[in-house]
Design a binder for these strands. Sequence first.
DNA 1: TAAGTCATGTAAAAAGTTACATGATTCT
DNA 2: AGAATCATGTAACTTTTTACATGACTTA
Lengths: 201, 201
Amino acid sequence: MRNSDNPRISSLGYALLSLLARRNRSGYEMSHSTSPPLDSLLWSAGHSQIYPELAKLADAGYVNFAAVAQARRPDKKVYRLSEAGSLALKSWVRQPPKPAPDRRELTVKAHAAWLIDPAEAAKVFRDQAERTRAEILEIGAYHDRLQTQSEETFPPRADEPMFGTYANAIYALDSRRQLVEWCLWVAEQFDTAIEVGRKSA
Amino acid sequence: MRNSDNPRISSLGYALLSLLARRNRSGYEMSHSTSPPLDSLLWSAGHSQIYPELAKLADAGYVNFAAVAQARRPDKKVYRLSEAGSLALKSWVRQPPKPAPDRRELTVKAHAAWLIDPAEAAKVFRDQAERTRAEILEIGAYHDRLQTQSEETFPPRADEPMFGTYANAIYALDSRRQLVEWCLWVAEQFDTAIEVGRKSA
DNA sequence: TAAGTCATGTAAAAAGTTACATGATTCT
DNA sequence: AGAATCATGTAACTTTTTACATGACTTA
């Protein structure tokens, strides 16, 4: 612990502490838990954000690390949650989350879609439905692997470490299924507008 | 149009162009369309981001503005979409949206909730359900006002200007209802964990 | 031989948040 | 008298994105 005047921990910082609360990991491994297709189960971030964030957490004493040499692989730094990190994380979890700002390009496109040809607009939303279906398959595949590989009960009980990942997978799947339905409904509305336009022409 | 080497327009920029495609507005008015409780119908942003963004759009020739003096009110700048802005917006709408990164503190808290007392964890999710219910009421109230004030058909047809706002309100309401259900389910899981803990104690 | 995985970083730019700043009018 | 609304901005900071940088080993 170099700098002990507890600097503020970012949301990403807490996400990393939460990963380390389950088991020790390298930055490389953590960056995979925050990148597609698994980012929806925790927090989205690229490796270029992870490495500096881990350095900050280590400097503040919330995590420690040890360099581990590997045969025919580059060395890695394996991080471990400190007592201070564990306390900070548990205290943060009890606080109400700050509201997630709504910032989806699809919403803006829906707002402006009346400006373009209805057939093209319908395509935008049907294509989105397709991409979202692909995401559902990827998250579903991860969920199935969870189930197969789990040594504990499945689904995990709420006091077991994997419960959060399970619950977040349920949420990610449900919200994407809902998005697919909505996209197809929007596309249908544009189809109807095409028909109406044809009649009045 | 001062600087015509078409600089890249941000997602926020397109959101502002989309507002101006419906009718002319001041920055002040647009900042209300991107702040709670209406931000979920377009794009979330504070006024300190809006004003510089409008200056950039004006400098690039995508919008124009006129200063309008008002009685017993400060002067305002009323912005208007230019032809270049309209073309840029329509061309952007046809492109597939960039995926919205998943970044919600609630997801991180679900991931880490096994670390704390199950009763406290249940409270975190029940409180979130309450706040989300309040959001549903606010968005629902706006939706009802839309319906009452609309001079056209309601619900709007897909080729009418207000269709996007209507569709986005439907999405915002549905996704929040789903979030409420999920939060209550998660809270129940922690309740069950409390009972199990009591039996084995 | 080219692409992919493992592994860690830095730099620069863009986007977003929070705070500072002003001032008249209107509502409680 | 104090708070809210109308109205526009800037400054400092934090967070996120994109690009640059390196290098061994493995698979197609």
